[in-house]
Design a protein around this nucleic acid. Structure first.
Lengths: 352, 352
DNA sequence: TTGTATGCGTTATCAG
DNA sequence: CTGATAACGCATACAA
């Protein structure tokens, strides 16, 4: 009955409890599962012993026989996305955490630094049955993860959207990024801006493609033509914004407004513009996406498109839970709304 | 040999591999462990079969017999700390992730929202042997988690510092927050500031207590007396900064400089000051701690104390790994350096 | 160098 | 209502 060895506490097993309570191990197991076929009396006795021993079931033994873990995997994008610099990720994690906690689900975080690490990690998670399902925190065009998970018929949800050819097969939670970008563009158009710059993120991210599409739609509908020089793309979150400004403003007639993929990037834009002597919003308007806390704290505070990041996380966990419970459920797509948060970086054009 | 059932892929076991390779299961197991007593020939053959089948060992079976998981638990502070709003946490997670990835360790994230949830979650993690060790991302005075882990003799590392009475028993990674705060105060003193406000975070957090101590030390050494009205504390990250300014500046003779617990809070301070018509740094200097990315993007960019958050995370994971490998190791404390990053929110006092 | 047998802590099936 | 007992998938001591 030694329960310490080398100072290391040995956990009790179901057998210890059984012995002490004078019942069979299977009975203890039933008590844990709160089986209705156990008399209240034995239940009470066993529970008392469990408490006395500080007994907790070993998760690995349990997972082994149950073939499920009650853990969901969260796949972060590779570091090249700067996932830990951009407040998007903490916020989406917050939503996932909240829902997971409600469902008594645990969270297993991917640690892969490179793109190549990530697919390997995902494979390991799936094959070794480490998690019951996953949430992908990104969506890009050439990503190998989605096809793999599909082939394995493993429950997963992507935040963002899957490639067109997989539309209707992959469950996801997303904003209508096309519409959001269109709205943002139209807003600037209504402020009489005619030349609008567009700073996108990674070219292989679907958000970027969708933003671009919305931007173009709005311009076309307004009878304006798209000036290729007005569209630039940058990977790096903050520095990218700074670089982009140079490219945009170096044109013979520079834009009077800029749409930026991300709030953080917009801060870079603001800073570079200010260093060039431009005043925002007097000389040039700047609007962006995401509405993270920081956008309110910027100076001037950013006009930005709120995309309900927390909801994105919360709903994805919710959707995943459903799919784990019923893996043969048809694909589902959840839309999360957006809304323009007007602050102080946008204004109507003044000069004629 | 059906490997699909209800559309759900069944993972292969060590036996499948054994059969297909024409060896015993134990041999396969040895190949996985890369045992030296297996001939290169069989090793190759078995490995080929593993690859062909896409075999990965079932982690639960393995954890069950090995009594270890290769997973470390990361305990976030309760939401009242706004862990997901403050860039400190993503950054420390980045460090942990990098080191964990190197060591082939997985990360299990706590999801508890309330303080009371958290201790329960920790107990479950320990008793059910879900993780091999943990990292606590916070340290407060009345926290029940540390005593519990100590009693269980469970490997853990805290980022921050343990209570005094547990000093020498608990391993931790921390900055010298007293010194850092003292240095920051002395810097302002050298800039001829005589009245320095202090905005601390949660009163039960050791960082706050240490900051306060350093602040007082510096003032006392300079022969100045401590004006209780100059010290205020706030929990909420951003709004707290705004509130604090009111309290500080409402004094008959307000301070000419302010030390703020956190960059994010400092943004709130800047904003409130600006709305009151104060110019930073001309009218009042503002300095803070952490040097998160955002502090550079603020306007004006913040003078702040860099505390190497990434290192804090990285080293804690490193230390934990050691302690897991050798649980009887005497307690260790790792210090991480700090350095003042001078930007544009601090300047010498002008008027006499 | 490889195979056989047993146990890790649970759950579930079958008797009783 | 409760008790044996056989899996779950792997690792290891012991044989060969």
């Amino acid at each position: 009955m030694a329960d310490q060895e080398g100072g290391r506490l040995l956990t009790h097993t179901i057998k210890d409890v059984a012995k002490l309570a004078g019942v069979a191990p299977s009975t203890v197991s039933r008590v844990i599962a709160d089986s209705p076929k156990i008399s209240a009396k034995t239940k009470a006795r066993v529970k008392a012993v469990m408490a006395e021993l500080g007994y907790h079931p070993n998760v690995h033994a349990r997972n082994l026989v149950n073939k499920q873990t009650n853990v969901i995997g969260v796949i972060m994008p590779s570091v090249s996305y700067a996932p830990f610099q951009n407040p998007f990720f903490p916020e989406v994690l917050r939503g996932i955490t909240a829902q997971a906690n409600e469902d008594k689900y645990g969270l297993y975080l991917s640690t892969g630094q490179l793109e190549s690490d990530i697919i390997e990690e995902v494979k390991e998670m799936v094959h070794s049955r480490r998690v019951d399902g996953m949430i992908l925190l990104y969506s890009t065009t050439a990503d190998p993860v989605i096809p793999f998970l599909l082939e394995e018929n493993f429950p997963f949800v992507v935040i963002g959207r899957p490639p067109e050819q997989l539309e209707g097969v992959v469950s996801y939670v997303n904003n209508d990024n096309v519409k959001a970008a269109k709205m943002l563009t139209e807003y600037l158009l209504l402020l009489k801006h005619q030349r609008i710059g567009f700073i996108g993120g990674r070219k292989d991210a679907y958000v970027t493609l969708d933003h671009r599409e919305g931007y173009c739609e709005a311009l076309t509908s307004a009878g304006l033509e798209i000036n290729e020089g007005d569209l630039v793309y940058h990977d790096e979150v903050f520095e990218g914004g700074e670089q982009a400004v140079i490219e945009l403003m170096a044109q013979v007639t520079p834009p009077t407004a800029i749409i930026v993929a991300d709030d953080l990037m917009a801060l870079g834009v603001l800073r570079m513009l200010s260093s060039m002597g431009y005043q925002v919003p007097k000389d040039i308007s700047v609007v962006s996406f995401n509405n993270v806390l920081m956008s309110e704290l910027a100076s001037p505070p950013l006009t930005t498109m709120d995309i309900q990041i927390y909801e994105l996380g919360f709903k994805s966990a919710e959707l995943l839970r459903k799919r784990i419970a019923n893996p043969d459920l048809p694909m589902q797509a959840v839309k999360v709304g957006h809304r323009l948060v007007r602050r102080e970086t946008s204004q109507a054009i003044e000069r004629q």
